[in-house]
């Protein structure tokens, strides 16, 4: 289900669901926390061994794995904490200042 929350902060009191329910679980994805980043992770395919430890250690569910393979960073939500880079046993992830050259 998609619950339309456009302009929710300006709704009339009548429009909110009863009991302050949030009607769409997981709609936090519409909120981009990527802007919090000061450092951005970069991934080196050649070094990656596909252990997926970065994926299971990310606090922001921001490492996307497809068909059991490292796929991408979700830069919309990645906060740039650097945990993935730190835990990677193969040194396949490095952190770079946001906005700089990658």
């Amino acid at each position: 289900m998609k619950w339309n929350i456009k302009d929710a902060e300006h709704w009339s009191w009548k429009k909110y669901p009863e009991g302050a329910l949030i009607l769409e679980g997981g709609n936090a994805t519409y909120y981009k926390t990527g802007g919090w980043r000061t450092d951005k992770p970069a991934w080196d395919e050649k070094k990656c061994t596909q252990c997926l430890i970065c994926w299971i250690s990310c606090p922001d569910s921001s490492i996307i794995v497809k068909d059991e393979k490292w796929d991408s960073f979700d830069y919309d939500h990645c906060k740039g904490c650097g945990i993935c880079a730190k835990v990677c046993p193969a040194d396949a992830i490095s952190m770079h200042p946001e906005g700089g050259e990658e």
């Binding site: 997981g26 936090a28 994805t29 519409y30 909120y31 981009k32 926390t33 919090w36 980043r37 606090p59 922001d60 569910s61 921001s62 979700d74 919309d76 939500h77 990645c78 906060k79 740039g80 904490c81 650097g82 945990i83």
Partner: peptide, 11 residues
């Protein structure tokens, strides 16, 4: 648990 929550970076 999706991304887009407001926990601090590295929580």
């Amino acid at each position: 648990l999706t991304g887009g929550h407001r926990l601090c970076a590295g929580c």
